[in-house]
């Protein structure tokens, strides 16, 4: 298996996640068992990107290149870049929705339990047909059986946090833009991911909705998650970030945000 033949393998893996995954380590898309990155000091490295080059299918010129960058367990990243610079693509690559063309993205599971979870939220969320509750139950049914009762209990709290308690039985297609975004985030919240990637979450949202989303994300961070937010503007969610990744003229540069 080589990284070059990634397209079909990437699909296979997306279909059958247990293929090519190691208990403690997931490497996308090559399936190569990379050396366990020795944790630098006390901070555990969650994910590292090496020599990544990504381009559009029919274009010779690369969309962007990433030499080496890593994401550790205390970094909350604000991903910046102009329109079309590849922010969404990078997030999709990290979450395994797109096959890597060249280079490597490795996930290093801190717990060693093999269930590090990455969750990417689309800029315009997709809601399942049916009620708000049905959308949330979808997540609960995806969880391992032993985690379901806790999630079911958390559901009430989550609805309150997201300001959706009155809309529980409403058909999801009738929700407003802000409510849809909050419901999508609430689904992710129920899942309790380790890495949460938010693609332009605050675009076109009113302040109240951003406020509510901020509550949910803060709660996730308190529970140990790290986040990556792509956004053009500074907002409550980017304020949570302590690291800046910015893509400009085709390269990714990381820097810390002075607090």
């Amino acid at each position: 298996m080589t990284p070059d033949s990634g397209s079909t393998q990437g699909f296979l893996r997306s279909l059958l996640p247990w293929i090519g995954s190691d208990k403690s380590e997931k490497s996308r898309p090559s399936g190569k068992l990379a050396d366990q990155q020795s944790p630098s000091d006390s901070v555990h490295c969650l994910l590292s990107i090496e020599g990544l080059t990504q381009s559009w299918p029919d274009q010779a010129e690369a969309l962007f290149k990433v030499d080496t960058v890593s994401w550790d367990g205390q970094q909350h990243i604000w991903l910046q870049g102009a329109n079309g610079s590849g922010k969404t693509t990078l997030m999709r690559l990290i979450s395994g929705l797109e096959p890597v063309q060249d280079g490597e993205i490795r996930c290093h599971d801190s717990s060693g339990a093999g269930d590090q979870r990455i969750c990417y939220l689309h800029q315009t969320p997709y809601l399942f047909a049916g009620s708000v509750e049905r959308n949330l139950n979808f997540v609960i049914r995806s969880l391992k059986a032993d985690k379901r009762p806790a999630a079911r209990e958390a559901l009430e709290l989550g609805l309150k946090l997201a300001g959706l308690e009155g809309l529980r039985y409403q058909d999801a297609v009738t929700l407003s833009g802000g409510e849809r975004q909050r419901l999508a985030l609430l689904r992710a919240w129920l899942l309790q991911p380790d890495l949460l990637l938010l693609d332009e979450p605050a675009a076109n949202l009113d302040d109240d909705s951003v406020e509510l989303m901020h509550r949910l994300v803060t709660d996730l961070i308190d529970k140990g998650a790290v986040i990556m937010v792509s956004s053009h503007q500074k907002n409550l969610l980017t304020d949570l970030c302590n690291t800046r990744w910015s893509i400009s003229s085709g390269t990714l540069a990381a820097s810390s945000i002075e607090g």
Binding site: S14, L15, L16, P17, S95, L97, R117, I118, C119, Y120, L121, H122, T124, P125, Y126, F128, A129, F138, V139, S142, L143, A184, R187, A188, L191
Partner: peptide, 26 residues
């Protein structure tokens, strides 16, 4: 189909069969 249907299901931890089911509903 809306690709996001499959992707969302996958991101929310559904197994491949369930993802396919979501896509079929879509």
């Amino acid at each position: 189909a809306d690709k996001r249907a499959w992707e969302t299901a996958k991101m929310l931890g559904a197994n491949p069969l369930r993802c396919l089911w979501v896509l079929m509903l879509e």
